[in-house]
Each structure stands twice: as C-alpha cells, then as structure tokens.
Design a binder for these strands. Structure first.
Lengths: 236, 236
DNA sequence: CTATATTTGTGCTGTAAAACATATTCTCTT
DNA sequence: AAGAGAATATGTTTTACAGCACAAATATAG
C-alpha cells in the first residue's frame, strides 16, 4: 500500500554551493534542466557499468558510493550527506567508456537533483568559477582516496574501525544528545567502510563497547571516549 | 667531481598537452614563469608537509609519488612518466593547509618544469578548456585511486604483484626487444607499489620467474607470459 | 681498491584476520 | 501474528602474510 507523504526538500536555488557560483543565464539553464528524484532506503541510484548521463546533487538523506570487489566483498569508497555532488567523476573521465565504476545506494530515504551531463559541460565551459570549484572538489576527493589507500592497507582492524567511527562523526555529526552518531549503518556497511569482514566489525565493535569507548544500541552508536578512539586510530 | 653533461629536454612549448590549450596571451605568461629543474636519481622533489608553491610537469625521467605509512612502510600511489603533471592536487585542495600529503622522488635522473601556483590559477580562471582538462585529469586519477583501494585491500600477493607488473608495462612500455619493461625499480619500490613486504615481493617475483611467467635479470623484468599475468591478476 | 652499506635472496616463526560454523535476535512480508 | 529471511553475535579453525634472522651479492664511498 502506498501512502502519499509530503517530502520536504530544498529547491535547486537553495543549494548554495552551486547556485552562488552561477550567472543569471546559468541559473535559467540549471532550473530548466534539473530534475528531482526520490529514492527509498536501500534503493540503487546508479550501478557499475551504467552509462553516466547525469550529475547528481543529494539534497536529502544519505548515500553510499561503493565498489564490488572480489567474491561478493564490497568496498565503500565514499559516504555522502546532503549538498554532496556525485556521479560527476564518471562524466569527465576519459576512462569511463564502460560506464560508472562505482555503485550508489541510498542508505536512508533520499532525494537527488539530476542535472544532465550536457548541462554541466555547458556550464563548465562558460563559467570558470564553477570549473574551479569542481577542480577543488576533485582534488579533495583524490587526497582523501590516496589517504584511504594507506589507512586501509596498513592499519590493523581496531585502528580502521576507530577511524571509521571518527569519520562518521566528522561527516554526519551527532544527534541532539551530543554523542550519538547521526547515522545508522548495518554492521555490514561498517565492515565495508573499514575493509574487514562483518564478523570482525561486530566483534571489534562490541570490544569497544566492553571497553566503554562506545555504547551500542542496535545500530545506534554513542561515542563515550573520543580521545581513546583517536589513540586507537593513531597507535593501532 | 661534477662534469658538465648536456641534458636534452623539450622546451615548454613542446609540451603539447598544455601548450595546445593555451591562448597567445597564456603562452607568454607560461614562458615567463615556467622554470626548468633537474633532479638526480633518488633525489626528493617534494616532501610531505612542504607548502605547495608550484605545479610541475615531468619532461624527462621517472618519478614516484608516495606516502609514508606506519612504521616506516611507504606506499607508492602513482608513478609518473614524461609529460605527466604533478604537485597540482595540493595546490587546489582546501585540505592542504598542512602542505603536500605525498612525497615525490625521482627514480631516475629527471627534469621538471615548475610553474608557480599563481600562474596556474590565473590561467585556470581565464581558460575554460585548460580548467576542463584539469577536471578530466583529476577525474581519471580519482578513478584510478578508488580502484587501487579495492585491488590493494582485496587481492592476494600474487595478484597484486601481477597487477603491478602489468601496470608498469602499460605505463612505461617495453624496450626495443618488445618484452623487457622499460623501467628499473628496486624490489623495495615494487613492494611499495604492490602493498607487500620487500621479502614477499622478492619471493613472489622469483616464484613467477620459476614458473617462467617472467624472467628477471637484476632489476630488469622481462614478461614471458602476459596471458598468465592477466589470469593471476584476475583470479588470484 | 678496499671497506662499508645497501640490496637481494631464503628459510623459519608467529600472528592477525579471514573463513567457517552455529546460535540468537531482529525485521520484513503475508 | 506467524513464519521466513536477514542481521547480529560469538566461538573455533585455518592461512596468508608480516616479521625476523641471516647469507650472498651489489653498490657506494673513502
């Protein structure tokens, strides 16, 4: 049974990160072409191999970007929060003739503006500030990705999990209580973020709980001792 | 004792990848500001923490970009060949107030054009084609970096080493004989590329040699059975 | 041209984390 | 509300690979 629910999302004009960079002419083009889409939790937004036709701006919800690895193992490469742009890397890459090389899935109900690749390319070629903004975004993401290579290959499970928890805190922040992460992920997703098996994510997580570094209540994670998480992240 | 040796490098005008995108005015600015520098084998070009002041274009030699990981372990994140641009990510990133987060070292005698960050920023803000070119480069590198995360974390040593050998072949190609890699790296560098210990790189490399997949002669690697390398890279 | 350091090559040992096995609890669907 | 299928939890076994020790071969310097 489907029930009508009113979903509140910002208008494209309210997505300051992009709007403020545009000229009047650009804005008209964007409004004419931006298209809002809604996704439910666990719905796939795009898939490895799909031909990228749109850039997307997440305006509500949370999205995971992940790759399918060997033997069904998946690796989350990015986690998005509202106002994040995504799906644009594949548009630009010379190496994307085989389509996206990541999957995007809503980890909670989400809304997304879709902007055709052609519109983006038009805007980029006539708006240097926008182009520069893309360069900065890509540079940041590349820096993060390079850093991830080292963390995920060299750190031990405890350090990797601590890093994941701290990342989730930095990215999504806390709820009203000031200590519970404002994001709910399955143990499996936490494992994919931290490059470990689900068993190990569960085990290590409950280890942290026993040491009173965190408190777990279902999928809610409350940080009790952030200092200690820093230490584990650094020292192992 | 220093002996004068004439080093042959292309003029900045001959670096087509950038020159062709520039207007007459841009070209004047570039020539006025580009500065050629030479580095000997194993010389450090920039270092983690250094404040990035220049973008660089490698015009002769080979350079490794690497990160210092835990306990002295290093991780090579990119290997450059002539005409590669580097050092530009750190210029753009909003997260680089602590300087570069990678090191760059010449793995053989190399020459590099240095272009001040200010010059690059001026060019980017008035030349949309150049900006777009940067976007494409960054998008490609980001795609490669994301792929690397999965390869290095999920594949086994044999597969990782096979991937490294195939990468070196794609990146640097063969010598005149059509089968010897046109690049000489220490076992240590091969290990850093493949995320394994030096011992394991040596062991696995001589394993491949025993299986007649490759032939090793000091640091020279000759590919005997590329098909088999593909298979090992894919299947493990 | 020695002397010292670095790189390369092998074997052995220990261990972190994957793989597997099995409950138990949660959460969808009908 | 009941039953099926996920997701969570925890213990046991296995193994891939790091870590170490040491020898031989190269490279570098004095």
């Amino acid at each position: 049974m489907s029930r009508k629910i009113s979903i509140i999302v910002p208008k494209i004009e309210e997505v300051k990160e992009i709007w403020d960079l545009l000229t009047e002419e650009d804005r008209v083009l964007l409004i004419q072409n931006a298209n809002l889409k809604h996704y439910r939790r666990n719905e796939l937004i795009h898939c490895e191999g799909d031909i990228p036709t749109h850039m997307m701006i997440l305006v509500r919800g949370k999205v995971k970007i992940y790759k399918n690895g060997l033997g069904g193992r998946t690796q989350i490469v990015r986690m998005l929060k509202p106002n994040a742009w995504f799906g644009y890397r594949a548009i630009f890459s010379t190496k994307s003739y085989h389509g996206y090389n990541t999957n995007a899935m809503a980890t909670e109900d989400s809304s997304v503006y879709q902007i055709p690749a052609s519109t983006i390319n038009t805007l980029l070629h006539r708006n240097a500030s926008l182009a520069y903004n893309f360069i900065v975004r890509l540079a940041d993401e590349l820096g993060a990705s390079d850093a991830r290579v080292v963390s995920l290959t060299q750190k031990h499970v405890r350090a990797r999990l601590a890093e994941t928890i701290l990342f989730l805190k930095d990215n999504y922040g806390f709820r009203e209580d000031g200590s519970t992460l404002d994001v709910c992920l399955s143990r499996d997703d936490i494992a994919s973020l931290s490059n470990m098996t689900t068993s190990n994510a569960i085990r290590t997580l409950s280890g942290f709980a026993k040491e009173e570094i965190i408190k777990i209540e279902g999928r809610k994670i409350k940080i009790l001792d952030e200092e200690q998480l820093f230490r584990i992240n650094k020292m192992g």
